[in-house]
Amino acid sequence: MQQIINFLVRNKILLLYFFFLIISLALTVQTHSYHQSKFLNSSNAISGGIFETANDVSSYFNLREENRRLHRENERLHTLLYNSEKDTTGLPMDSTLREYTVVRGRVIRNSYASPLNYITINKGRKDSIKQDMGVITTLGILGIVENTSANYATVQSILNEKSNINAKIKNTNHFGSLVWNGEDYQTVQLADIPRLVELHIGDTIVTGAMSSIFPENIPIGAISKFDLDQSKSFYSIEVRLFNDMTNINNVYIIEDLNRAEKIELLTETNSNDQ
């Protein structure tokens, strides 16, 4: 007994170090294998507050660019509005008829240099932001809400090795999954497109209908390179993003109001199969 205690006292620094190392490794493994930790992330009140204050200042520097981008989007939306068919039913738009709700938000922390990138935005539970809502910008998709606090939320960026989003080639129904290999922040990879599909460099990639997070046909990027993968039956496609991931400020958070129903149906079908 005496010797055990002596041993502990003698090596207490080493043991303390191992204790901390094991804690941090456990947290690291957890981050790699499953969702982010619930509380220790940048959407908590203190870090969120600090990032928001810093962003309040730094966002002044690219106001002109941001303004131009929003102006351009307004132009596009106006064109759509004036060219759309007049509402023939005469009924006012009712909130129960809607499929999606959109909330605007602002990025207060962006990251794109690590293999697991997260973005922090200034909307949280108080603005009814929930996990697994889609986040887009005027140019394309950005990511999926991962964690929320009262006033902030973290978004799993599409530049995250854990990200996996249903995407398809525009105007066809060939869909695959969009992943990122962690190398270049301007390109992501589209997998699982069979080789019989005819592809061209420059083809647009949009979100697919299979997702219960994003509406269909939201732009993602354009094909910059494609090649057959090792099995020779699927393409591996490089997609150059429309979004400049290094420069994002205003975002929209999209909620699919029928998501619960879709998921319920899917789990029911899956459980019937077994």
Binding site: L14, F20, L25, T31, L40
Partner: peptide, 20 residues
């Protein structure tokens, strides 16, 4: 630093190592 940069416990492990 980890909490702020959403890289949970990578910085902590590296810093504890050099501290030791």
């Amino acid at each position: 630093v980890d909490i702020f940069s959403d890289t949970l416990a990578i910085n902590a492990a590296a810093t504890a190592t050099i501290a030791y």
